[in-house]
């Protein structure tokens, strides 16, 4: 049972990462029988953050994964897109929909999911 539950979590690197960091920090007690906790981190995510995962997954594709970026990197990129300082792709159109405070909250949350330091 425990092995099986472990494998379950292993199917998604993203889940595995988040359950090791942000989610586990939020979970009061480790679940019984050694099974890893499902990622609850999204329940406390700031507005807009989970939508990012539609394009930015655990692995880099033609779209970057955010897994190895720090909160500061993500925040800076969002600011540059918002202010038109980065070559417009699609992110400029999305970043303009978020205030600096909202962008920082999203950057912090995304970085925490991947386990990097803010």
């Amino acid at each position: 049972m425990a092995t099986r539950a472990f494998k379950v979590i292993g199917v998604s690197a993203w889940v595995a990462l988040s359950s090791m960091t942000g989610a586990l920090a939020q979970t009061q007690a480790a679940p019984a029988s050694g099974a890893a906790a499902p990622s609850q981190a999204f329940v406390a995510s700031p507005p807009g953050a989970t939508a990012c995962l539609g394009c930015h997954g655990p692995e880099a594709t033609a779209l970057p994964s955010l897994a190895r970026l720090s909160s500061a990197d993500i925040e800076a990129a969002l600011a540059d897109y918002r202010d038109g300082k980065r070559e417009p792709t699609l992110m400029n159109r999305i970043a303009k929909g978020f205030s600096p405070e909202e962008s920082k909250a999203i950057a912090d949350w995304l970085a925490a999911q991947a386990g990097s330091k803010p």
Binding site: L53, G54, C55, G57, A62, L63, T89, L90
Partner: peptide, 19 residues
Amino acid sequence: AEAGYAEAWFKTITHDVFG
């Protein structure tokens, strides 16, 4: 580039939903 993003999006989102 946008054609490439389209395919990347499909891969990532279907992983989020079903993967």
